[in-house]
């Protein structure tokens, strides 16, 4: 446990030094990765989404690829393409940028649905199939996608079914005033990124993921998770109820958060900490305009 905690603290400190004043968001992102979930960062451009993703990849010692999604992006630009080699007289598969442990899909909602779904299928299967050949993607495999808010011009919003594949959606938000001052005074964050050294390697990360699985969940806590899920499924109020996949994801994310908190059993507090990030993009704002997760936090009694 102590080794886990030491490693986690190292990661949090190092990323926190790059992305200032966003400790809670960084913790959420890390729990998402520890829970083997893909992450969606949603915010306006320029608040540090890409920097955060980059910093995480470097700190965790993961191979990193960045795909800038544009409106003319083709699936082959993501997955790779078979090229005819004149020397050998054969087709050889040229791997695309998706073959990395951490893939940053930047501005995913600027690409048309065809390219989006190429990525999203890879996320679900952790393998890709091209010309009847199946290629395994590396392990661990994370996609950190960033997207601009839906109402910006020139976007293809992700359909609900694909949003569901992201374990969490995290908003960064503007920095606080004193943090912004520090940003303005300090070194360019991108330069800092260059100097970043990994604080652990991929195998250590897999070890942490295993620790997440061993976090204890009591029946009383399962009651709470079920009460939350059941509440969203009641008629009226929510656009749609939480799926079983979402419920499983919620529990996994809560376990990862518990590990970050340094405890060995999940408390309702851990569920509540990750609730907004896990459920908000699945249930959406309520018909009366209240945030769905806020309503859940307030309305569902702790059993």
């Amino acid at each position: 446990m102590n080794a886990d905690q030491r490693d986690i603290r190292g990661v949090l400190e190092q990323v926190g030094a790059i992305v200032l004043g966003k400790e809670r968001q960084i913790r959420l992102c890390l729990s998402c990765l520890l829970a083997r979930g893909h992450l969606l960062l949603e915010d306006i451009p320029g608040v540090g989404k890409t920097t955060l993703a980059h910093a995480l990849a470097k700190t965790l010692g993961l191979s990193f690829q960045r795909i800038q999604f544009t409106s003319d992006l083709l699936p082959a630009d993501v997955l790779g393409v078979s090229i005819f080699e004149r020397e050998s007289g054969q087709f050889r598969f040229q791997r695309g940028p998706i073959f990395a442990q951490l893939v940053l899909a930047d501005e995913i909602n600027r690409a048309p649905p065809k390219a989006q779904s190429a990525l999203l299928e890879a996320m679900e299967e952790q393998q890709i199939t091209i010309d009847a050949n199946t290629y395994e993607l590396p392990d661990p495999f994370f996609v950190v996608a960033t997207q601009n808010p839906q109402d910006q011009a020139g976007t293809f919003p992700l359909p609900d079914s694909q949003l569901d594949r992201f374990l969490m959606r995290v908003h960064l938000g503007f920095p606080a005033q004193e943090v912004e001052r520090e940003l303005l005074n300090g070194v360019d964050r991108r330069d800092l990124l260059q100097t970043l050294l990994p604080s652990m390697d991929a195998s250590r990360l897999v070890g942490l993921q295993r620790s997440v699985q061993s976090i204890h969940v009591s029946p009383a806590l399962l009651d709470y998770v079920q009460a939350l899920v059941a509440y969203t499924r009641r008629p009226g109020g929510f656009k749609q109820g939480l799926s079983p996949r979402a419920a499983i994801g919620l529990l996994r994310a809560a376990r990862a958060w518990t590990l970050l908190e340094g405890r060995d059993a999940v408390l309702p507090d851990d569920v509540r900490a990750v609730l907004d990030a896990v459920v908000e993009h699945r249930i959406g704002p309520r018909e009366d305009g209240v945030r769905g997760s806020a309503r859940l936090l307030e309305a569902v009694a702790i059993p």
């Binding site: 408390l267 509540r272 936090l297 307030e298 009694a301 702790i302």
Partner: peptide, 8 residues
Amino acid sequence: RPSETALE
């Protein structure tokens, strides 16, 4: 408050 955890 029924929706409050022990820590809260």
